[in-house]
């Protein structure tokens, strides 16, 4: 805390605060994320093989149906209050797969249900996932335009 100007003050203080942070256990976190993320992918693959062999789906239909199954599972687990417990331990392992996206839509929906069906649930459902959708659509449009021009 010996900085002479405001910027130095801030930097010194932030460094001081950081010095008390417990160290992040990178290896343990990565291992858990790999395990849970891999497990979710295995479940996805199981659905894929199952749908291909039993219902005879193929191509984009098969990919879509698999995603729908995983989204359903992610939403269901969020509703049961299990997904946040998985997420607490798995980190990116359960956020990155499509189930994590389902969780980010379903969890605000549950949270804001108390504020009403229209202004609560429906309006605030995309409070977490909204930016992903906005920039996802934007990026998709830009790529589409570039693809058209090439």
């Amino acid at each position: 805390m010996t900085g002479k100007n405001k910027k130095n003050y801030n930097e010194n203080y932030i460094n001081y605060v950081r010095s008390f942070d417990p160290p992040t256990q990178h290896f343990k976190n990565c291992f858990r994320a790999f395990l849970v993320g891999g497990l979710i992918c295995c479940i996805g693959q199981f659905f894929r093989i199952f749908l291909e062999n039993v219902f005879g789906l193929e191509g984009t239909e098969l990919a879509g149906a698999t995603s729908v199954c995983l989204i359903f599972l992610g939403t269901l687990l969020t509703g049961f209050g299990v997904y946040d417990r998985i997420g607490k331990n798995a980190g990116a392992g359960s956020i990155v797969p499509i189930t994590g996206f389902a969780n980010s839509v379903a969890s605000p929906a549950i949270e804001f249900k108390t504020e009403g069906m229209v202004y609560g649930l429906a309006a605030k459902m995309f409070i977490v996932a909204g930016p992903i959708i906005v920039f996802g659509v934007l990026a998709g449009t830009l790529v589409g335009i570039i693809y058209l021009l090439l």
């Binding site: 008390f20 942070d21 417990p22 992040t24 969020t78 209050g81 997904y83 946040d84 998985i86 997420g87 607490k88 331990n89 798995a90 980190g91 359960s94 956020i95 994590g100 969780n103 980010s104 379903a106 969890s107 605000p108 549950i110 949270e111 804001f112 409070i127 977490v128």
Partner: peptide, 17 residues
């Protein structure tokens, strides 16, 4: 949590601090 941070059921990790 709802006021300042994320919905309760969101599967994010809380940093140790």
């Amino acid at each position: 949590e709802r006021q300042y941070r994320y919905p309760l059921e969101l599967g994010n990790t809380r940093p140790p601090q």
